[in-house]
Design a protein around this nucleic acid. Structure first.
Lengths: 195, 195
DNA sequence: GTCTATAAAGGGATAGAC
DNA sequence: GTCTATCCCTTTATAGAC
């Protein structure tokens, strides 16, 4: 019984996430959601007390999907240079595969809601960034690990953020949309910084 | 007469830009705008045919403010390494000073409206990026200039994008909010890539 | 050029039948 | 658990007085 309810809830969230990711919280109405899911607004309110709650659960589900990646991205039995190379490639694939994740993250940072940022920091980033900081210290002990960590992430994320605009910019090529190409570029760009 | 009308319009836009930047298009109502400007909704519609037009003009004014920077950021009588160093510092100051510019840009990229992205590409980025590409070719002839250009911009922009969240992340320090600190970090990180 | 008043549509949310 | 029907507020936008 609870399991069935859970299943419907999950399905609602799964179908709603892309809406919030693409149009933002204010850009999506409960009517939009109901229509997309294929039920009525009244039914929606049987599963969630209000729109905010639905949104927060959608966020949670989106991030939960990638918790494993965030935890397992650090294989310790290899040399730091190989570890960061693999990590950069994995991150590129992850960001390239799940547009919803990146877009929701961006919107949350733009929105700046303190409580939700704290939730994301604690549940999504915290462990991952701590591992990144450690790895950065191994790679470049003389650098500020936090700045280097954010730089690596930013370098990757920005390339995918700007994708919708890339084809309108001078010098672009189709290959620039390939996550392997971006990964190789990013790694080779940083390679000389820790040698 | 036209000049006075223009002045009122400009004032409306100036006071409205921060609203759109912080809360997004759907997050701001014509009432909000009227209240912020200090006139009524009816008067607003005397100056702009609809909300879309107001928004687009607000975008235009925001970007126009920085056209000069985009054009003048390239002093040609210096060696490439100095030029990129100065450029990185200028970009950091620019992005750090005008939150509205960065936020509106982000929102536009997220929104993905083709026509408006084209407008931004043509009127804001085009010349700047072409100059960047040239400079990148001088710095690192063996690299893809477009990828290097986007990387440099992304490296800078992301540090300021993530500012609202930075204090919640492991390893952060107050100094990380300083545009000089970011600029020096970014430059030193890339320095080894073109030597 | 600014106001008041109001239309018309869309938004979140609830009640109660089935 | 889903539906219909509805409430009430906000939204965009317009008309017309001053």
């Amino acid at each position: 019984m609870g399991a069935i309810k859970q299943k419907t809830k999950t399905e609602i969230l799964t179908k709603t996430i892309p809406l919030f990711a693409q149009r933002g919280y204010d850009g999506v109405s409960m009517r939009d959601i109901a229509k997309t899911v294929g039920i009525t607004v009244g039914s929606l309110y049987h599963h969630f007390p209000d729109k905010q709650a639905l949104y927060v659960e959608a966020l949670g589900q989106t991030f939960a999907k990638h918790t494993d990646f965030m935890r397992d991205a650090f294989v310790e039995n290899d040399n730091p240079k190989n570890r960061i190379r693999i990590l950069i490639h994995s991150l590129c694939v992850l960001v390239n595969e799940d547009n919803n994740l990146s877009q929701l993250m961006q919107r949350e940072i733009l929105d700046g809601d303190k409580k939700r940022l704290q939730f994301i920091a604690d549940n999504v980033f915290s462990g991952f960034l701590r591992n990144m900081n450690e790895l950065c210290l191994l790679l470049a002990p003389e650098r500020d690990p936090h700045l280097l960590t954010i730089s690596i992430i930013g370098l990757i994320v920005y390339h995918f953020q700007i994708t919708p605009m890339r084809s309108l910019l001078p010098g672009h090529q189709c290959s620039h949309n390939d996550s392997e190409v971006i990964a190789n570029h990013v790694f080779s760009l940083l390679e000389n910084s820790w040698e």
